[in-house]
Amino acid sequence: MNIGEIARRAGVSRSTVSYALSGKRPVAASTRKRVQDVIDELGYRPNATARALKEGRTRTIGLVIPPAGNRLTHMQLDFVASVVDAAARADLDVLLSPSGGDHDRSFERLVSESRVDGVILMEIRLEDSRVGRLQRAGLPFVGIGHTADDQAMCWIDVDYAGLIRHTVHHLADLGHRKVALLSRSPELVAAGYGPALRAREGFTAGVNERDVEGVEIACGDDARSGQESIEELLRSHPDLTAVTTINEAALPGIQRALADAGLTVPYDFSVTGVAARLWAEDFRPPLTAADVPAVDMGGQAVALLIERVAAPATPPRHILLAPPISLRSSTGAAPMRGAGGVVSRTGRAGGGPRA
């Protein structure tokens, strides 16, 4: 069924049917009703591609995600779910497209084939070629995260530098004198992944401001890597008493490694960081952390993109979120140091009774 057949049955021209559907020109109420009656009788639905050509819009947005071969973290899944939900409320469809490595062809098709009205980018690097490609194409886009040139694009992000700095201050206030930053994977850090490098910046500032010794370790986005990273830290730095992290996927491994080492959180070792609330509350004991509002961020990213599509010439907006650190049960006073700076822990040789 097509517009021509509707026009024949309604006794009007094809252009009248088109105007009745698009609303671009006024159509008499009686004529519009006659056209609508035929449409209802035939169960006609306008072809999405044809409608897009007439309106100049696809009513579809692209969401560029990490490569499909990598397991998404819970926080990333929250971003995806919130974007899809917010888009549905705005009567928009979402086209998911992986990027990176062999998946760059998918991103290029998204940009060059007019499949979407705009794009939301995830997992942004300080220098990100995808941003330049979208700018050259003139396609509206919004980042969940931002590049080093934070004025060049529209974005919403978490203040990883400020939040990790605050976690270091929190640990220093509890008497910890040597702390570690457990970051994201070596590949992401080497590629200039924004949150990892900004977390490093905040960590460095925090340890310098409080005269605390700091150690950084890259860690894959999974529990096994988290366990191996903590085991390595405890071997190399037996006087380490606390860790802060932006790697929520590693948290189960962190918990397992500390338990295997006979360390009780928070009496022997403190853990804090930046994570989605679900991960923080599932940690045992619950994690003192800045809870990333991933669901709200996805919705705000969609709202920003709708603004960009409607008015692409307006100056880009920037939203930097700094959620408060929720004090739970995973941080406590540093264990006492004995002669030669050796840490006395409750669950290890030489440890005293729990206070």
Results as ranks from 00 to 15, higher is better:
residue 158 V to G: 02
residue 169 H to E: 13
residue 286 P to W: 09
residue 347 G to N: 10
residue 208 N to G: 15
residue 231 E to F: 01
residue 300 Q to V: 11
residue 243 V to M: 06
residue 190 A to D: 14
residue 81 A to K: 06
residue 86 A to C: 07
residue 226 G to D: 10
residue 221 D to A: 09
residue 297 M to F: 01
residue 158 V to R: 02
residue 128 D to N: 01
residue 175 G to M: 09
residue 347 G to S: 10
residue 216 E to N: 00
residue 99 S to R: 13
residue 163 L to H: 04
residue 127 E to Y: 07
residue 255 Q to M: 14
residue 80 V to K: 03
residue 193 Y to P: 08
residue 315 P to Q: 07
residue 59 R to W: 04
residue 149 D to G: 03
residue 86 A to W: 03
residue 160 Y to P: 02
residue 201 E to P: 03
residue 236 S to G: 15
residue 195 P to S: 00
residue 352 G to D: 12
residue 43 G to D: 07
residue 64 V to Y: 04
residue 282 D to Q: 13
residue 88 A to I: 02
residue 121 L to C: 00
residue 307 E to A: 03
residue 9 R to F: 01
residue 353 P to V: 09
residue 334 A to K: 08
residue 343 V to T: 13
residue 148 A to C: 02
residue 198 R to K: 13
residue 144 I to Y: 05
residue 146 H to C: 10
residue 76 Q to G: 13
residue 269 F to E: 10
residue 224 R to Y: 05
residue 53 L to W: 06
residue 134 L to Q: 05
residue 217 I to V: 15
residue 267 Y to F: 04
residue 241 T to W: 10
residue 177 R to V: 12
residue 165 R to I: 03
residue 274 V to H: 04
residue 119 V to T: 14
residue 86 A to M: 07
residue 57 R to I: 03
residue 274 V to G: 03
residue 346 T to C: 15
residue 56 G to L: 07
residue 236 S to K: 14
residue 342 V to N: 06
residue 44 Y to C: 02
residue 104 D to G: 09
residue 16 T to G: 00
residue 230 I to H: 10
residue 162 G to E: 00
residue 34 R to K: 15
residue 119 V to G: 04
residue 342 V to F: 11
residue 116 V to P: 01
residue 90 A to N: 15
residue 16 T to A: 01
residue 325 I to T: 15
residue 197 L to H: 07
residue 193 Y to C: 06
residue 260 D to L: 11
residue 264 T to Q: 07
residue 144 I to S: 07
residue 281 E to Y: 03
residue 145 G to Y: 02
residue 285 P to E: 05
residue 257 A to N: 08
residue 245 T to E: 05
residue 141 F to E: 01
residue 197 L to M: 05
residue 41 E to G: 13
residue 134 L to S: 05
residue 339 A to Q: 06
residue 344 S to Y: 05
residue 337 R to P: 00
residue 42 L to R: 05
residue 2 N to Q: 09
residue 85 D to M: 06
residue 155 W to V: 01
residue 333 A to E: 14
residue 157 D to Y: 04
residue 320 L to M: 14
residue 229 S to Q: 11
residue 155 W to D: 01
residue 118 G to Q: 06
residue 60 T to P: 04
residue 142 V to K: 00
residue 96 L to F: 10
residue 69 G to Y: 14
residue 315 P to R: 11
residue 51 R to G: 13
residue 141 F to H: 04
residue 222 D to L: 04
residue 68 A to F: 15
residue 162 G to I: 02
residue 152 A to V: 02
residue 234 L to A: 07
residue 354 R to Y: 04
residue 291 D to H: 11
residue 275 A to E: 06
residue 157 D to E: 09
residue 98 P to N: 01
residue 82 S to C: 05
residue 223 A to Q: 11
residue 115 R to T: 01
residue 101 G to N: 09
residue 185 S to L: 10
residue 263 L to Y: 12
residue 68 A to I: 13
residue 168 V to Q: 09
residue 91 D to N: 14
residue 269 F to N: 10
residue 347 G to T: 05
residue 62 G to R: 01
residue 228 E to I: 06
residue 205 A to R: 13
residue 184 R to K: 07
residue 270 S to C: 08
residue 292 V to Y: 03
residue 328 R to L: 12
residue 226 G to W: 10
residue 215 V to C: 03
residue 26 P to Y: 12
residue 271 V to I: 13
residue 17 V to T: 03
residue 226 G to F: 12
residue 55 E to K: 12
residue 139 L to E: 04
residue 250 A to E: 09
residue 51 R to V: 02
residue 38 V to K: 11
residue 51 R to K: 13
residue 247 N to F: 08
residue 192 G to C: 05
residue 260 D to V: 04
